[in-house]
Nucleic acid binder design. Structure first.
Ligand SMILES: [Zn+2]
Ligand SMILES: [Zn+2]
Ligand SMILES: [Zn+2]
Ligand SMILES: [Zn+2]
Lengths: 132, 132
DNA sequence: TAACGTTATGTAATAATATAACATTTATAA
DNA sequence: TTATAAATGTTATATTATTACATAACGTTA
């Protein structure tokens, strides 16, 4: 059962934009796109992004400095994320594989460290780009 | 058997600095530290970093925009990397776990994508920070 | 309702990270 | 040698992200 988060005005504008885009978006591209809605400054964008990441509605693709809407309805928080990234067309998908997530969530080694979160990024060529 | 790369002057200066630091270093901190050795501009640092990453002598910690010397002698290229990051003291270690790397290198799903590279970052509290 | 604490917003300035463009030099190899 | 690739030097600029401070909206409870 997913907690309902009542998004604020700016959070909703920015989430809707990212979600509808269907892919990763960069902060300043978001800013450009929401200026007509009254969001004029980078900080307004970064604050909304920060909150949306915190509650798991979006994730940051670290290697690309970009943000993508969560494609996995059960992702309440951004604490166990995996993505596949095409190095040619830059298409990104969230990987939703229960074996993988179990394996990583349960991973431990002899470092004495307790892992509470992970982020995994796979790179390669997508189907389309491979066949070119 | 690891290929010997003859590092250039700037590459050697920057690699030695990162390696001796024993942890992750940020580009502008590197720049500051090597200015006395004649490296004066960001681009000189980023070019050396780019090459060092390419040949696997260092890795980029994406979530921190920082660079760490490879702690795994068999890492020829930065194509299969895993790190543990303490969210309190920011200590970073490269994870060298053959089961994990086999599991991830062989991972495939039904997306039709061929994965040639991955980067995994685990977050948590290290032993020291946990006991505080 | 009133008071309070929390969350979100607005705005300006600036910090931190990274690359483009161009000229020159050094290393490698045919 | 000649050519080719790799590395360097330098200036300027692009991109990504945060600090600082003031104000407004929201939710809770007295
Ligand atoms: Zn998700
Ligand atoms: Zn592709
Ligand atoms: Zn390594
Ligand atoms: Zn720690």
């Amino acid at each position: 059962m997913q907690k309902e988060h009542n998004l604020s005005k700016n959070q909703k504008i920015i989430f809707d934009l990212i979600d509808k885009s269907g892919g990763p978006m960069k902060a300043y591209s978001i800013l450009f796109n929401v200026q007509k809605k009254g969001i004029k400054a980078p900080l307004q964008v970064y604050r909304a992004l920060g909150k949306l990441v915190e509650i798991g509605k979006i994730h940051k693709i670290e290697s690309r400095n970009a943000f993508i809407a969560c494609q996995n309805s059960s992702c309440q928080v951004s604490k166990a994320t995996a993505f596949s990234i095409c190095e040619s067309c830059e298409n990104v998908s969230e990987i939703s594989n229960s074996k993988l997530s179990k394996y990583l969530s349960n991973f431990s080694d002899n470092s004495g460290m307790k892992y509470s979160k992970y982020n995994l990024e796979f790179f390669g060529l997508c189907k389309k780009c491979k066949s070119k």
